[in-house]
């Protein structure tokens, strides 16, 4: 027992001297508290936070990375989109009205065909028409603030000066606007195909996408119910040779009922 107490006392002494040194021997520094998280309040948002929001939209709601990624080869990579602007504006193939980086980037999102990078145009158009949908409409439906945020992010990504200003009007914020504005229903099937961008992946109408099954004779192959179900729940059945999870699953909420019916009827009639 005596030995035990001696050893215990010795061990405690060692531990206390270590603790004592750590408490008294080195300066007492209080580490910095963790940084505060991004606020969504536009009013007090810094441009860095705004760029951060742009990045989130770019990778999230905007679904940009669906095509603009290093693996698919479906659309150009955007790391240098902002730095090559000057060259683009001078390019004889350029059809837009932008004058600087910011306006060029915005234009490329809402009028994608203003300039099509060689090799990325719609099949058969000789790179004159872009397969990319107008991001301000259709299922993507980004508002101005969101487009500005993505523009800011692309500028930041390209390493050029971020000229985008944080919009001051907080009521226009990304969070609130989602469902406020009622979109006008599309009037023709062509509008739907264009705006939803079916042709980016499918061969349908004038488009010749290859990521999804050919739809030019779909009415002969599938029943009406099957086609409707495939739009609403794309993963329910995957045509052999095509990949799962490619087609967005939210057309059921993006399209109005009348539009869906119009589209289904159109597809059924393709024989």
């Amino acid at each position: 027992m005596k030995n035990f107490l001696k050893v215990a006392a010795f061990s405690l002494l060692v531990i206390f001297s270590f603790a004592g040194f750590a408490n008294l021997g080195i300066p007492k520094i209080e580490p910095a508290p963790p940084p505060t998280e991004e606020k969504i309040d536009l009013g007090s948002m810094t441009i860095e936070q705004f760029v951060g929001i742009g990045e989130k939209i770019y990778k999230g709601k905007g679904t940009c990375t669906l095509c603009h990624n290093a693996l698919g080869g479906r659309a150009p990579l955007l790391e240098k989109a902002a730095t090559v602007t000057a060259a683009r504006l001078k390019d004889p193939r350029y059809k837009g009205e932008a004058t600087d980086i910011e306006s060029y980037l915005v234009e490329s999102m809402i009028k994608p065909s203003a300039f099509v990078v060689a090799g990325f145009g719609k099949k058969g158009t000789n790179d004159a028409v872009s397969p990319m949908p107008d991001v301000s409409t259709g299922s993507i439906g980004m508002n101005e603030v969101e487009i500005a945020a993505v523009t800011a992010y692309l500028q930041e990504l390209g390493g050029v000066e971020v000229t985008v200003k944080v919009p001051e009007d907080a009521s226009d914020s990304a969070a609130e606007d989602d469902e406020e504005e009622q979109r006008k229903p599309f009037e023709t099937v062509e509008d739907i195909l264009d705006e939803v961008g079916c042709g980016a992946c499918h061969k349908v109408g004038e488009d010749e996408g290859e990521q999804g099954p050919d739809l030019t004779k779909i009415g002969a192959l599938r029943t009406e119910a099957h086609i409707r179900a495939s739009i609403l729940d794309p993963n329910a059945e995957i045509t052999k040779g095509f990949k799962k999870d490619l087609m967005p699953k939210d057309y059921g909420t993006q399209l109005y009922a009348s539009e869906l019916e119009m589209l289904v009827n159109y597809l059924v009639a393709l024989k």
Partner: peptide
């Protein structure tokens, strides 16, 4: 064999 298939979509649709 099918380079067009993209991994990032796998993540997005994970």
């Amino acid at each position: 064999a099918e380079p067009a298939a993209e991994a990032s979509t796998d993540v997005a649709a994970s």
